[in-house]
Every structure is written in structure tokens, then in C-alpha cells.
Computed example of a mutant assay.
Amino acid sequence: MAVAVELRGVRVRYGLLEALHGVDLACPAGRVTVLLGRNGSGRTTVLRALAGDVPVSAGQVLREGRDVTALDAHRRAAAGSAYVPAERGVFGSLTVAQNLALSGDAPVDRWFPELARLLHRRADTLSGGEQQMVAVGRALAARPRLLLLDEPGRGLAPAVAARLHGALFELAAAGRTVVLAEQAPLPSLQRAAVVHVLRRGRVAFSGEPSELGPAGGAGGADRTGLSL
């Protein structure tokens, strides 16, 4: 499979703390890639490095084989990527309709019909789950070539999260590349092409979802059932 985006030997530091220790991972084009790991494992930092939201102290970030390490988040977004953080992904002073309009005519009724009654509400008056639907819906509407999502199901009801994951697979089937981070394996993500399990800033396992067993190759199961 062709590779859409890749980290090669990437290190990221936050002050004196090194969050990624020479990470190598690849995300296939036109497929869904899942990053798994507990809080502090490095999942979010991987997404931020791919998005250009944090500088790397060593290594390379490649986009379709081209070195984009020096490109900031604005230029990577202009080249067709979108990053949705786990929190604060909306413009609170704008209404739901205004937030969604930033990416064009979002099909709210298809992805998140729950938002239809909230279109005239300010985003900062919504619940956490409702704000998450707005942020993810805006990114989906933009139809980016590369979509990066940090725990997109956070605060969503299981049925809504499963519907969202279905939309992500539809996006991938249309040729887009999706990379998302979650804390644990989810049944609705079993069709993902690749799973990367992170532990303490390193890749502990890379493979297909079916290879993640209760005592899988990543070094023993924790209480969540995720091999870490």
C-alpha cells in the first residue's frame, strides 16, 4: 500500500521532557489508521507532529514521500490536512451553524442529526459531546486529503461514535486518509488497515486490528484489554 504520511525517527520535546523517542510509523493512503495507547503514551504528540502543530527535535515527517518537517501547521492545512484535537476544537463565540459553515455546506443530517436543533446556539454553550460533534463535523465537511483526529468519540454516545467511525471509513473509501487516536480498541474500528500501539513515547506494536490479542505482540494486556 502507498504511504500517505510517515514519521521517521521522530523525537519531540516539551521543555526538558521528551515525549517521542525516535518514533517510526507509517499511515497508508486511502485507509484508516488507528493510534492506541493510554494517556501519556504519545498518541496525541504523534498526531500533532503529523499536523505540524508541534516542532520535532529530530527525525522527519514525510507526506507522500516528501519531507514536510519544516512546514508549519498552517501550510500543512493548506496542502489538504485537517487536525481535530480532543478538546477545544470549536470557535466558542460562533454559533453551531457558523462553525460548520467554515468548511462549507456540512451535511449535518447525515453525520450528526443531533446538531440540527442546535444550529443557532453558541458553541461555547454546548456540552462537551455536542462540541465534539461540531468540531468533527466541520472537519468532515472540509473533505481533507489527510484527516487527523484525537479521540473523536470522546463524550459521544456509543451509537453516535460508531456512526462517526462509519463515516470515517466512507471517507477512506473515497480516497482520503484518516488517522485517529483512541485509548482502547473499539469494535467499530476493526476495519482499520493498521493499528499502532504506543507506550511511553515509543511504538510497541504495529499491525492489523486482528493481531491485537489479549496477550498480543505488544507486551501483555492491561486492565482495558489493550495490549501495551
Rank of each mutant, 00 (worst) to 15 (best):
R199G: 13
R13P: 00
L140I: 08
R63P: 00
R13I: 02
A221I: 05
Q190G: 14
T33F: 02
R31I: 00
V197H: 03
L164I: 02
T95A: 11
A26D: 14
G92Y: 04
L186V: 07
T44W: 01
P214H: 14
G128H: 06
R11Q: 14
L20V: 06
T177Q: 06
P158M: 12
L164N: 04
E87T: 07
L102A: 12
S227F: 11
A19T: 09
R63F: 12
V5L: 13
L212Y: 05
G37Y: 04
A86T: 12
A101S: 14
T69D: 06
V32C: 06
A97P: 01
L228E: 15
P209F: 10
R48P: 01
L17T: 14
P144G: 10
A123P: 01
E211R: 13
V3A: 11
P55H: 10
R75I: 01
R176K: 12
G42H: 11
R223K: 06
F91G: 11
Q131F: 11
Q60K: 14
A106E: 09
R163V: 07
A172G: 08
E208G: 14
G217F: 11
A58L: 01
S41H: 08
S188C: 14
L140G: 08
A193D: 15
V10A: 08
R11M: 03
V84E: 13
L102E: 07
H74D: 15
R143W: 09
A123H: 04
V32P: 00
R13Y: 05
D67L: 05
G207M: 03
L118M: 08
E130I: 08
G40T: 05
L180E: 05
G207D: 10
R122M: 04
L148H: 05
A77I: 00
R199E: 15
V108L: 11
G166W: 03
P55F: 02
L50G: 09
S206I: 03
R43D: 02
P214C: 13
V108N: 11
H120D: 15
F169Q: 06
V54S: 11
Q190E: 15
A157P: 01
G137M: 04
S227D: 15
T125Y: 04
P55W: 03
L118Y: 03
G216Q: 12
S127M: 07
R122W: 08
T45N: 05
R145G: 15
E170W: 02
H196L: 08
V194W: 11
L47N: 12
F205I: 02
R122T: 12
A82Q: 07
T45K: 00
G40W: 03
Q190W: 10
A70N: 05
A29T: 10
A49S: 09
A49H: 04
V12Y: 06
L180K: 07
L189K: 01
P187R: 06
V61S: 12
R76C: 10
V136I: 10
A49K: 02
P113K: 02
R117N: 13
D109Y: 01
V34T: 13
L180G: 10
